[in-house]
């Protein structure tokens, strides 16, 4: 046994009182000593993480909340403690700010339409891939997943090109006799265009998750339903979907945490326009930061954080109900 353990054990025994001293010297480690030493070792292992985590995550997280109750601006960086406490003024200002309210509505629009669409497309792909086809299965999976790994900035640049008034998309739908709008310059169409791109980029993630879920649907249950005369539609809606429910929920929550923060898409594709129709909460926050209104920016980001936290709670529940 290592000497350090021995020392710790002896130390523990001393503290436990003289009575047991003679007795326990031989058979080494008392529980308290090992535990203390283990704690020390454990914290040594955790130290690098705890350090960077505290400085770059915990501290900013807490100070972001603190900032949101002050009138901190970029001029206060040199003396951060000299700022004035303004209570909930920043939050009140936000809800009185048409642009912020607009950005909230836009964000909910993006999430509220984007999530169901992405889920339906991803589920359709997953079901198709799981329907017993064997040829090119891996190739299909790879192909549908490929957009997930790409930089949003880079694909947003490409999509901006595709979405031009006479770009690729309008050319293709023109074959069907539809004359497409000027997607990104039309306040009514800019957001749908952005959602279309988000579906394209993110369907792969959900497809993989759903595919894994589908493979856990017990075959014998489906076969039993089939023997009982259930049509394939009934089997899907009455057997597969209910079994898949937790997976669907987790997928939805995971994705909406990402969708709630959307920023790169409008930053690259529209600059938040036209007429603020694609301004997201993240983008609003970034703009306020750019103007130097750090207090206001923090308040806006915390509102977003609360929305995301609520979703996370839902997710934890979903996790728990699975066990």
């Amino acid at each position: 046994m290592s000497t350090a353990t021995g020392v710790a054990a002896a130390d523990a025994n001393r503290r436990a009182g003289g009575r047991r001293r003679g007795h326990s010297r031989g058979n080494s480690r008392g529980p308290v000593g090992t535990r203390r030493r283990a704690t020390l070792v454990a914290y040594l292992f955790a130290l690098p993480f705890v350090l960077t985590f505290s400085i770059f995550m915990l501290f900013p997280l807490v100070s972001s909340l603190a900032l949101s109750f002050t009138d901190f601006t970029n001029r206060d960086i040199s003396s951060p403690l000299a700022v004035a406490f303004v209570g909930v003024d920043q939050y009140a200002a936000l809800f009185g700010n048409d642009q912020f309210v607009r950005s909230m509505l836009n964000t909910f629009y993006f999430v509220g339409v984007g999530i169901p669409l992405t889920m339906i497309v991803a589920l359709a792909l997953a079901v198709a891939l799981n329907s017993g086809i064997s040829r090119f299965r891996t190739a299909f999976r790879l192909g549908f997943f490929a957009p997930v790994v790409t930089s949003i900035v880079a694909v947003a640049v490409v999509w901006r090109f595709i979405l031009q008034p006479d770009g690729l998309l309008n050319t293709v739908i023109g074959w069907a006799g539809i004359s497409g709008p000027d997607w990104l310059n039309d306040p009514a169409w800019a957001m749908p265009a952005m959602i279309l791109m988000a579906v394209w980029r993110n369907m792969g993630t959900l497809m993989i998750i759903f595919l894994a879920g589908l493979q856990h649907v017990p075959q014998d249950v489906l076969e039993a339903a089939q023997v009982d005369g259930a049509s394939s539609r009934q089997r899907f809606f009455r057997v597969t979907l209910p079994i898949l429910r937790p997976t669907l929920l987790i997928g939805a929550v995971l994705l909406s945490v990402g969708y709630l923060q959307f920023f790169e898409e409008p930053f690259v594709m529209t600059g938040g326009g036209p007429l603020d129709s694609t301004l997201s909460i993240s983008y609003f926050t970034y703009n306020q930061f750019g103007f130097g209104n750090y207090g206001l920016a923090s308040a806006a980001s915390y509102i977003l954080f609360v929305a995301i936290a609520l979703l996370s709670i839902v997710q934890f529940r979903a996790f728990r109900s699975k066990d």
């Binding site: 292992f45 770059f56 997280l61 972001s64 980001s301 996370s312």
Partner: peptide, 27 residues
């Protein structure tokens, strides 16, 4: 490893799993 504060550390990790960059970037 069994150590004091293990649960707290784990809960901390889990809670911050979802913290978005937009919340922390200003401070």
């Amino acid at each position: 490893i069994e150590f004091v504060g293990k649960r707290a550390l784990f809960v901390l990790v889990m809670v911050t799993l979802m913290v978005p960059g937009v919340v922390t970037f200003v401070p």
